[in-house]
């Protein structure tokens, strides 16, 4: 990922229901990737973090992957 994923794809809002989009920002253990790895803007990184935490709460994404 060279540029910001959401800017590149014209995605304005980051929704917790888009589990497939959010999955790419998890590492193989299910932890949220750092900004150095995601190459997102600071705002989008914060929004992704919030969305992933909401998706986890609703059981759409796992807390850990064994």
């Amino acid at each position: 990922m060279s540029a910001d994923y959401f800017s590149q794809n014209g995605i304005k809002y980051i929704d917790y229901k888009d589990a497939d989009v959010l999955k790419q920002f998890l590492n193989p253990h299910g932890r949220i990737k750092s900004r150095a790895q995601t190459n997102l803007t600071a705002k989008h990184q914060r929004d992704v973090t919030t969305a992933i935490k909401r998706a986890r709460e609703m059981g759409l994404l796992p807390y850990i992957i064994k």
Partner: peptide, 15 residues
Amino acid sequence: LRYILIKTTREETRA
């Protein structure tokens, strides 16, 4: 079983 109530915007938010 479980619910979430969040503040959001009127526009479509799904990618």
